[in-house]
């Protein structure tokens, strides 16, 4: 702080710069007051500071937009880290199983669908479900996005597939809980993502907005595929009530995560806030 340039007695520029910020050294203060050169330097520093502060003022509504971005961001889902070699083993195992099953079917007289055309349609429907269920699953003692049940909502929404799942057998999309977790109420995760299949997306959006508590401030996004995404923060109890009401309106919930309509007993309500993401997809 007291470093001086020996020749003219002025502080060096590092000391002067620090003093311009802190004003902490009385000796430099006395020098600057008496030295026009150093005063000019310090004035220059301060003019830069003022210019930068003015130029870098944030927009007035920045915080609102940042908060909206937080609510709009997809939630983290549990990650299962699988070594590369495991992928190869899994693919090889799957290929072996498919080969073995195919061989057995042909040995026993060909494909059932080939024998009975009515079965072909059912097999196609079943395959659509299988696509959703064949992913690796993880069970953790929370519900919500990716939690409680295996999440099926980690890929872009394919409304045709969702509709097919919903109109065939909605329960079939929900794999059973492990025995150890059955019957135990769970606390919702901070993020819950539900996909609802509805008749009229626009009308349903209005109905949903009308059903929200007055204090809620939802964010809506209209997608190009005419589906609607709505995000809102609700207390867990409010969310359970909302889900019940949506079910009463005749909508089909195709996401397996809690809260599920009419299943309050499975929810350990604590009054915590939950970021609820709703995708409304046309039937």
């Amino acid at each position: 702080m007291n470093a001086r340039t020996p020749r003219n007695g002025c502080p060096d520029r590092v000391a002067l710069s620090v003093w311009a910020d802190t004003g902490a050294d009385p000796a430099i203060a006395r020098h600057v007051a008496a030295c026009p050169d150093c005063r000019m330097v310090v004035d220059g520093y301060r003019s830069f500071d003022a210019a930068v502060r003015r130029a870098a003022r944030p927009p007035a509504d920045l915080a609102d937009r940042v908060w909206a971005a937080c609510l709009s961001a997809p939630a983290d889902s549990p990650t299962i880290i699988i070594p590369v070699w495991m992928h190869a083993v899994r693919i090889a195992a799957a290929a072996l199983i498919v080969g073995a099953v195919t061989a057995v079917v042909f040995v026993l007289g060909g494909s059932p669908a080939a024998r009975n055309p009515a079965l072909a349609q059912a097999e196609t429907e079943g395959a659509a479900l299988a696509v959703g269920l064949a992913r690796p699953t993880i069970y953790i003692p929370f519900a919500g996005t990716g939690g409680g049940y295996p999440s099926l909502a980690t890929e872009p929404i394919d409304s045709s597939r969702l509709t097919r799942v919903a109109t065939t057998d909605p329960e079939a999309a929900v794999p059973p809980l492990p025995v150890s977790l059955r019957g135990s109420p769970v606390v919702l995760d901070n993020f819950v993502h539900h996909v609802w299949v509805v008749g009229d997306v626009r009308a349903s959006e209005h109905e949903l907005l009308g059903a929200l508590p007055e204090s809620a401030t939802p964010l809506c996004t209209n997608r190009t595929d005419r589906s609607v995404c709505l995000k809102v923060i609700l207390a867990d109890r409010q969310l359970q009530q909302l889900v019940n009401r949506m079910q009463d309106a005749g909508w089909a919930l195709v996401s397996p995560g809690l809260p599920q309509p009419g299943e309050e007993s499975r929810l350990l309500a604590t009054g915590k806030d939950v970021v609820y993401t709703v995708d409304l997809v046309a039937r």
């Binding site: 870098a56 003022r57 944030p58 927009p59 920045l62 915080a63 940042v66 908060w67 937080c70 901070n190 923060i233 604590t270 009054g271 915590k272 806030d273 939950v274 970021v275």
Partner: peptide, 20 residues
């Protein structure tokens, strides 16, 4: 503790600084 909405206070307080 589960009060997600309170995060908005941090946003109000510091978003401007992150921006700057």
């Amino acid at each position: 503790d589960g009060d997600v909405a309170i995060f908005q206070k941090l946003v109000d307080r510091y978003a401007g600084r992150a921006y700057q």
